[in-house]
Simulated assay, not measured.
Amino acid sequence: MSESKQNIRQSGLGKSFFVGFLLLCMILFLALGFWQLDRLQWKEQLIASANDRLNAERMDIPSKAAWADLDPDTFDFQKVRMTGQFLDCCEARVFISLPKKRDRYSGPGYWIVTPFELAEGGVVYVNRGFAPQELTLPKAEYARAPQGELTLEGYMRRPERVGSATLEPDLAKQVDWVINPARLNEILFPELEDVAPFYVNLSSPTANDLPQAPDEAALNFTNRHLEYAFTWFGLAALMPILAIFWLIRTRRPRQELAKSKTED
C-alpha cells in the first residue's frame, strides 16, 4: 500500500473515531438530561409532600415502639409536640454558615442540639436554634436548655447524611458537622440509650432563648434540576454541530491528499 493511500485510510479512521466519540457524548448528555427531569419530578413531589405536612395538624411525636418502622420520606417536616425534659449531660454544636437573607443572624455559627428525654421513654435530639460563632466558642455564652418537664412543639427532620467528605467531630469542643442522631450517639454521647432515628427542629418559643430559632422557611429547597436538564440537553445539541464543523474543517486537507495521490 502506497504512503498516500495509507494516509487517506488513517485519516478516515480518525474521523470515524472522533465522530463516534461525539455521538457517544451526545447519548450520554441526553441520558443525563432525562435523569435530571426525573429528579425534577421527584423534587417537586418532595416539596409538595413536605409542605402538606407543615400545613397539617400537629400530632404527638411517635412513640419509641414505632421508631423502627418510620420512613423518612413520610415523616420529614411533620409537625409534632412532645413532653419531657432536656438532659443536662450533653449538648452538641453543629457547625453551619447561614446565608445573608432576612434572618437576624448570618455567617458562621452553630446549631445547638440538645437531647430531650420523652416522658414516655426514649431520647430525641432537639435543634434548639442558632448561636453565632462569637457566642459559642471558646466559651458558651448562649442560654442553656431549661430544666424541668416541658411540652415542646417542633417538626421532625430526617438525619443529615454522613458522606466521605464529612469532617471528623471535635470531641473536646463537642462540635460536629451534621445533625445525625446515630452519629452523635456513637461518637459524642455513647451513654445515651433509645435514641430516636430523627431529630426535631424546635419551633415553639418555649425553651428557645437562643439568638435565632430553627427556621421553618428552611423548607425553601434548592431546585435547579430543570436548569441542569437544559444544560445537558444543550451540550447534547452541541455535539452534532461540533461533528459537522470538524468534518468541514478536515474535508479540504483530505481532498488535497486525494489529489496528490492522483498526481502520483
Rank of each mutant, 00 (worst) to 15 (best):
1 M>Y: 02
2 S>T: 05
5 K>G: 02
7 N>V: 00
9 R>Q: 07
11 S>I: 02
14 G>M: 08
14 G>V: 02
18 F>D: 04
19 V>T: 14
22 L>D: 14
27 I>A: 15
28 L>W: 13
28 L>V: 09
29 F>V: 04
32 L>K: 12
36 Q>I: 03
37 L>G: 06
42 W>M: 10
61 I>W: 10
62 P>D: 01
64 K>Q: 12
66 A>Y: 11
68 A>Y: 09
70 L>K: 07
79 K>Q: 12
79 K>S: 13
86 F>C: 10
89 C>K: 05
91 E>T: 06
94 V>M: 08
94 V>F: 06
104 R>Q: 13
105 Y>C: 11
107 G>K: 01
115 P>T: 13
116 F>Q: 00
118 L>N: 14
120 E>N: 14
122 G>Y: 05
122 G>T: 05
127 N>W: 07
127 N>K: 07
129 G>K: 09
130 F>S: 09
139 K>D: 14
148 G>A: 11
156 M>F: 07
164 S>K: 06
166 T>L: 00
168 E>D: 06
170 D>K: 14
170 D>Y: 09
174 Q>C: 01
176 D>A: 09
179 I>G: 06
180 N>D: 06
183 R>W: 12
186 E>T: 08
193 E>W: 04
196 A>F: 11
198 F>D: 02
198 F>P: 00
201 N>E: 08
204 S>D: 09
218 A>C: 10
228 Y>P: 00
229 A>S: 10
229 A>I: 10
234 G>W: 13
234 G>V: 11
238 L>P: 08
249 R>Y: 15
250 T>V: 01
250 T>Q: 06
253 P>I: 09
258 A>V: 03
